[in-house]
């Protein structure tokens, strides 16, 4: 075989492998997408040609499922988590990055170590605590739990971005007449903005998809979308068409966010990594 032919074979092989990998990942999503527009009868048939219906979407928003309320809960909880986590984490990350703190390394490791504890282990203590102080089935409670989950990631990620800002730039601003707070507002925040956006969206996705704590700590008022999915069981079995419609409602915001951050994300990852 000549070199050209080897190359053609190799390139075709690569294409096949990529397509196979893409298929493995995409087939469930395509299936859900099709199922969401099928009637209950059609769902169990692998038909690609069928008469699409929007009925599933109106059903899931109607009683008894009332997905609208869950969508509202999820949005509020995820948005509030991000709105609190990012400013607080930025403050912490700045301090870790720029000041000499006693035991900074130990603190950073401990912050991350909280993530090594399996969620299942701590969900029951949370349940008992929340029951005692009346936070069960409240959005406030869920925001607190989500904060505990996302803060370590946020601190580490944002610290990486701030480490990437040259100290010279901050010192120049100080000599030019800025106080420390002005340096942070005028120099650090604008320069770290891509990182802050990336971290914010990252936190939003985690909070949006969080399942275990929401399952145990809510039952009616504060139920979020992922838990809402579990509603679609009936005597005739799983209502796949409704489940799929709800699944799409969960996925679409994530898809949009992924498009928004795609540009920042790679930069964010490498910027944090190189120091």
């Amino acid at each position: 075989m000549t070199g050209t032919r080897i190359r053609i074979v190799w390139q075709s092989l690569q294409t096949v492998i990529i397509l196979a990998a893409a298929a493995v990942m995409l087939v469930p999503i395509i299936w859900i997408f099709l199922a969401a527009f099928k009637t209950h009868v059609d769902v169990y048939q692998l038909k690609l040609v069928f008469r699409p219906t929007l009925e599933n979407f109106s059903t899931v928003f109607a009683q008894p499922y009332d997905l609208g309320q869950k969508l509202f809960n999820s949005t509020i909880v995820a948005a509030a988590t991000v709105a609190i986590a990012i400013p607080v984490a930025t403050g912490a990350a700045y301090a870790f990055s720029r000041f000499e703190l006693r035991g900074a390394t130990a603190m950073l490791v401990l912050i991350l170590a909280t993530q090594f504890v399996p969620a299942v282990v701590i969900v029951l203590p949370f349940f008992v605590m929340f029951r005692d102080i009346g936070l069960l089935d409240t959005r406030v409670g869920l925001v607190l739990v989500n904060l505990a989950i996302v803060m370590p990631f946020a601190v580490w990620m944002i610290k990486g971005f701030i480490d990437g800002i040259p100290v010279d730039t901050e010192e120049a601003a100080m000599v030019d007449g800025s106080s420390r707070l002005q340096v942070i507002r005028n120099i650090v925040l604008p320069m770290a903005a891509p990182g802050l956006i990336t971290s914010g969206i990252f936190c939003f996705i985690i909070a949006w998809n969080e399942f275990l704590f929401a399952l145990i700590l809510t039952n009616k008022d504060a139920v979020t979308l992922p838990i809402g999915l579990a509603l679609f069981k009936a005597e005739e079995g799983d209502l796949w068409n409704l489940l799929s419609a709800a699944g799409i409602i969960i996925m679409v915001p994530m898809f949009v966010l992924a498009l928004v951050i795609r540009r920042h994300f790679v930069q964010g990852m490498t910027m944090g990594a190189v120091r």
């Binding site: 010279d168 010192e171 120049a172 000599v175 030019d176 800025s178 106080s179 320069m191």
Partner: peptide, 18 residues
């Protein structure tokens, strides 16, 4: 603080605001 000393400084790495 540096801001109150009324000095101006030029840094080796310029220290510009990108």
């Amino acid at each position: 603080l540096p801001k109150d000393r009324n000095v101006a400084m030029v840094f080796q790495n310029y220290g510009l605001y990108p």
